[in-house]
């Protein structure tokens, strides 16, 4: 599961922020889960829990918020959601799961058919907020 690597990245970033801000206890971490990458949230949580063993961070501080994936065409300015027109077939879905930029390989603008579009939101895993004891974020 490459969700493990994404969980590692989140944890490394939280620890970095904590070091930079004086090492206070972590009160909460809000993690965005972009729809496009189709991250398996259970696998992600499992990876996170394993990585947190021996740490003073509790899995409960992590809160997850799903983000819809949306696109805008650079040619005709049409906007659409992944739920309107997503990848067709297992191969496309798998490729985008591994590397969300594969969306530009497999998806097309539903309005004009162009491969030249922009992902506006909902790519993959992001950290939306880290709240530390003492008020910094």
């Amino acid at each position: 599961m490459h969700e493990w690597a994404l969980a590692e990245a989140v944890l490394a970033t939280v620890e970095k922020i904590r070091r930079e801000q004086g090492g206070g206890a972590v009160r909460s971490v809000r993690v965005g889960i972009g729809e496009l990458q189709a991250v398996d949230l259970e696998a992600f949580r499992l990876g996170l829990s394993s990585l947190l063993e021996g740490s003073d961070l509790a899995p409960e501080v992590f809160q997850f918020q799903k983000e819809a994936a949306s696109f805008r065409c650079n040619r005709c300015a049409a906007e659409w959601l992944l739920t309107d027109q997503g990848p067709e077939g297992e191969e496309a879905r798998e490729a985008i799961h591994f590397l969300p930029e594969a969306a530009y390989v497999y998806l097309r603008c539903p309005s004009c058919g162009s491969p030249d579009f922009r992902l506006q939101a909902g790519r993959g895993v992001s950290i939306q907020e880290v709240e530390l004891e003492g008020g910094g974020d």
């Binding site: 620890e15 922020i17 895993v125 950290i127």
Partner: peptide, 9 residues
């Protein structure tokens, strides 16, 4: 929003 990946590289 913070990208977590650079810290993992």
């Amino acid at each position: 929003m913070i990208d977590p990946r650079p810290a993992a590289v």
